[in-house]
Amino acid sequence: MQIFVKTLTGKTITLEVEPSDTIENVKAKIQDKEGIPPDQQRSIFAGKQLEDGRTLSDYNIQKESTLHLVLR
């Protein structure tokens, strides 16, 4: 499925993911596309910070959902 990741600069990245993917996985995909190390990424969805060990389905993130990426 496709999800979108919006950065603070307003750029939107499209990722191909599975509901079973962990947040860690997703951060690795963002690193592949953007070169941002996962330890600098904070992902926010529906106002909640997403934890690395959880999966997209844990957070009820579905296709075409938009995550927000904040850098630390």
Results as ranks from 00 to 15, higher is better:
H68P: 00
N25M: 15
T66H: 15
L56M: 04
L69N: 02
L69R: 00
K6P: 03
P37V: 06
T22N: 03
L8W: 15
E64L: 11
G10W: 04
I61A: 02
S20G: 11
P37I: 08
G53W: 14
D39W: 14
K29C: 03
V70A: 08
V17E: 00
P37M: 08
L56F: 02
K6L: 09
L8Q: 13
N60M: 06
D58Q: 06
G53S: 12
T22S: 07
P19E: 07
L50T: 02
T12G: 02
I44M: 11
D58Y: 14
T7S: 05
Q40V: 11
K29Y: 07
F45E: 04
Y59S: 03
P19Y: 07
V26K: 00
L56W: 00
E16F: 13
Q49D: 14
I61Y: 00
T9Q: 11
N60K: 08
A46E: 14
D58C: 02
V17D: 00
I30P: 00
F4I: 05
Q40P: 07
N60F: 07
K48M: 14
I36Q: 07
T14L: 08
E34S: 13
K11P: 04
D21Q: 03
I23A: 01
E18C: 10
T55F: 04
K11L: 09
L56R: 00
Q40E: 12
N25D: 11
Q40G: 10
A46P: 05
V5M: 03
L71G: 08
K6R: 11
Q2I: 15
G47F: 05
L50C: 04
L69W: 02
L8E: 13
R72D: 11
K11S: 08
M1Y: 13
R54P: 03
V26P: 01
H68Q: 11
S57H: 08
S43A: 15
Q31A: 14
Q40K: 12
Q62L: 10
I23C: 02
L15G: 00
T55N: 02
V17R: 00
L67M: 06
H68S: 06
L8C: 15
F45R: 07
P19I: 07
I23V: 09
T14D: 03
S43D: 08
T14Y: 07
K63C: 05
Q41I: 15
E24P: 02
K6G: 03
K63N: 15
S43H: 15
S65F: 05
T22I: 04
G10K: 03
V70M: 10
D52E: 09
D58V: 01
V17C: 04
Q49S: 10
A46W: 14
F45Y: 12
S43G: 14
S65K: 03
S65Q: 11
G53I: 06
Q41H: 10
I30V: 09
I3Y: 01
L15D: 00
Q31R: 12
S43N: 12
K6A: 05
I3F: 01
T12V: 14
T66A: 03
I30F: 05
K33C: 06
Y59Q: 03
D39K: 09
R42I: 15
D39Y: 11
R54Y: 12
E51V: 08
S20I: 06
E51Y: 06
T7V: 10
P19H: 05
K11I: 10
V17G: 00
K6E: 07
K63E: 12
K29V: 04
E24C: 07
P37Q: 09
V5N: 02
G47T: 05
R54L: 11
S43P: 15
P38M: 15
H68A: 04
P38Y: 13
T55G: 01
P38C: 09
M1N: 02
H68K: 06
T66L: 09
I36F: 11
D32Q: 14
K63Y: 06
Q62P: 07
E34W: 15
T22D: 03
Q62D: 08
E16G: 05
E34G: 08
G53E: 09
I61G: 02
K29D: 02
S20T: 12
Q49K: 10
I30A: 06
E64Q: 10
R42P: 12
K6I: 14
Q41Y: 15
Q62S: 10
P38G: 09
L8V: 12
V5A: 02
L15C: 01
A46R: 13
I13A: 02
D39H: 12
V17K: 00
S65N: 08
Q41F: 15
K29Q: 07
S43V: 15
I23T: 03
G47Y: 05
